[in-house]
Amino acid sequence: MIINNLKLIREKKKISQSELAALLEVSRQTINGIEKNKYNPSLQLALKIAYYLNTPLEDIFQWQ
């Protein structure tokens, strides 16, 4: 199972779901689904999230 800290990191950086979704060219619902662990992002999307949040990938997504 993958645990993610996306919501915590996104809120710490004061970025809304809508703003992050626009940067990543995905829907706000996609961001919401990832934050709620409804599904895991593709590797490409995970890397883009880490890039736009300027945060190491392993700080956002962790195996458990």
Rank of each mutant, 00 (worst) to 15 (best):
M1L: 15
M1Y: 07
M1K: 06
I2M: 11
I2G: 05
I3V: 14
I3D: 05
N4T: 02
N5P: 02
N5I: 03
N5H: 07
N5R: 11
L6V: 05
L6Q: 03
L6C: 05
K7M: 08
K7T: 11
L8P: 11
I9R: 03
I9N: 04
I9Q: 06
E11L: 12
E11D: 08
E11I: 13
K12M: 14
K13P: 00
K13E: 08
K14N: 15
K14A: 11
I15D: 00
I15C: 05
S16T: 15
S18D: 14
A22C: 08
L24H: 01
L24I: 13
L24F: 03
E25I: 06
V26H: 03
V26S: 04
V26N: 02
V26D: 02
V26I: 13
S27F: 03
S27T: 10
S27A: 07
S27P: 15
S27Q: 07
R28V: 15
R28K: 12
Q29D: 15
T30K: 09
I31S: 01
I31P: 01
N32S: 13
G33S: 15
G33K: 15
G33H: 15
I34C: 01
I34P: 00
I34A: 02
E35Y: 01
E35P: 01
E35S: 01
E35R: 01
K36P: 01
K36M: 15
N37I: 03
N37E: 07
K38F: 13
K38A: 12
K38E: 15
K38V: 14
Y39G: 05
Y39A: 10
N40G: 15
N40R: 10
N40Y: 13
N40A: 15
P41F: 04
P41H: 02
S42R: 06
L43F: 13
L43G: 05
Q44W: 11
A46Y: 03
A46K: 07
L47T: 11
L47K: 11
K48V: 05
K48H: 05
K48T: 06
I49R: 00
I49E: 00
A50V: 05
A50F: 02
Y51L: 11
Y52E: 10
L53D: 00
N54K: 12
N54P: 00
N54E: 14
T55H: 08
T55V: 13
T55A: 08
L57R: 04
L57G: 02
E58G: 13
E58Y: 11
E58K: 12
D59S: 10
I60K: 00
I60C: 03
F61H: 01
Q62L: 08
Q62N: 06
W63Q: 04
W63T: 04
W63C: 05
Q64A: 14
Q64M: 10
